[in-house]
Design a protein around this nucleic acid. Sequence first.
DNA 1: TTGAAAGCGCTAACAC
DNA 2: GTGTTAGCGCTTTCAA
Lengths: 342, 342
Amino acid sequence: MAATIRDVARLAGVSPSTVSRALSLPGMVNATTRARVAAAVEQLGYEPNRAARGLITGRTGTIGLVVPDLANPFFAGLTKGVQARARRHDVAVFVADTDEDPGVEAGLVRALAKQVDGVVLCSPRAGDAELAAIAQETTVVLVNRAAEGLPGINFDNEDGMRQSVAHLVALGHRRIAWVGGPASSWSTQHRGLGLRNAAEALGAQLVPVGNFAPTYEGGMAAADQVVATGATAVVAYNDLVAVGLLARLHSRGISVPGDLSVVGVDDIAMSGMARPALTTVRLPTQEAGRLAVELLLAMLDDPSAAFAAHRDLHGELIVRDSTGPARDPGDGRTHGSKGSSA
Amino acid sequence: MAATIRDVARLAGVSPSTVSRALSLPGMVNATTRARVAAAVEQLGYEPNRAARGLITGRTGTIGLVVPDLANPFFAGLTKGVQARARRHDVAVFVADTDEDPGVEAGLVRALAKQVDGVVLCSPRAGDAELAAIAQETTVVLVNRAAEGLPGINFDNEDGMRQSVAHLVALGHRRIAWVGGPASSWSTQHRGLGLRNAAEALGAQLVPVGNFAPTYEGGMAAADQVVATGATAVVAYNDLVAVGLLARLHSRGISVPGDLSVVGVDDIAMSGMARPALTTVRLPTQEAGRLAVELLLAMLDDPSAAFAAHRDLHGELIVRDSTGPARDPGDGRTHGSKGSSA
DNA sequence: TTGAAAGCGCTAACAC
DNA sequence: GTGTTAGCGCTTTCAA
């Protein structure tokens, strides 16, 4: 068995409480005793039992991270950031993947909440009321979702969408399709909003084509509807969707960016590897994860303090080959049959 | 505060131990008392404190998962599998990402080991001796790495490589390059071995071009050396590397599969989306994660039992567009200058 | 500055 | 079948 605090105490010739203090509150113990304790700790390879400590302090030294889908590189990046920063603080991370299932999400968070000091909740599908209820039970930091009264790390979706639209308008696009993600997704709503505002401000027309799964398959499924709108450019919910669009467009013989320009969001690794390489709004995912941890730990350290309700991280438009000049408007309805009625 | 076992006991009019038994060993308690306890538990929303339970049982209900890089879809898939299966067993998972840093790995595993019942170690870079030392401290299941005396879930690399070579030979390839991953990687060694054996058995020549980072960038870096070998086909360490190869080959104007056929390993999502779509050996990553958890939990349940040292999961060759007939041998040295001396 | 004692919430002997 | 007791390893009053 591993050494306990009593073993250390015996070896150092002091009481267990002194060992405890030497480790947690070094200032309160004589330098020489402290050295003796340190030596004994070293010799025994002693490491305090966290469960026992947690039992009395009420802190577990553990946080939870809930993501919709680890296979989505966006969340993988986030997870890396969370996990790396937590380690720096000697905090362990429970990771839970909800598989994009809102039903699983709530129960999972509740279960997790009992075992951790706090939870980082990424892109939750739960409603505001449910989130508020969860926040009653444990300390919560939201990522990629704003909710009244709850702290969170977000991306400046409006601005990212504005950059995209500005880019497309500069290339001559006036009719821009928008492929949304899940309807319940906060970022779908905000990106849609940002696009609408930007389009209006910049004199372009935005054509929403509905909600699709935030996956490659979702993009494949959306492609034909996008074409039918007669738009010369399309903004996709995320890069996975955009790459799916690219694939389906290619197999239909529609040239990108010749016939249609495509913009994604996230800048996952795959986007740079796509052909044509994808123009996208780069989101600092790892950074978001790191900030979420810092925020959560700060809240835990000082529960009474008020924390900035949320923080917006700036996204940066990365222009690659999937966007180009708008095609001649005369071509506008070449590929779609419903375009004229849309 | 959350309800404790004493609250439940008081409400149900029984002793704490009865509550404990009603929950852990229902068979040992009268049906009617059990019902009373259940009602009280329900009413109070009681959930046992795992730390307290762990303090006495010596089990934390937690396992650790160590991966080199969560951003690599291969490990993301593995993590999903581990995490999903663990949840079914009501076990929580600490996830740690070593960032491909062998120096971090050892320390991380040691630290983790103190907080969990067991650890799933994926593709560890550590040497056999070090792994053995870790296994002394905690229960370990290896994934994607075999080591003497340690249980593990592996992929049948030899067979996967044999399938690849057979496919290429059938297409007329006789000179096949091999782009290895990190030299310290167990799978690099075994894939290399499998390729060598298969090539020999099937009358092809294998040309190793060295070790590269298991990333897109690694593939980019390897491409020119591959071309220089004069090989008509190349097997890459994994799909990320293969996609990197594809990209660099494309920018050099080398046609795939016209001039060079490319085969990867893993079948990550990206591979199907690449252009040309990548022929690859599909590895059942989630399955591996699930099996690793089952094995680990079985070992924990019965520490004295002997477990199969390891289990090999079969990989399946997925043929896509990146492989085709070998080009005319006369073309063999078109792109490379060192080809004739290699 | 240090030690003794109590107790965090739970389970496991041991009685009954 | 159930209650009583003790104690897991640690921190934290309270005294000294």
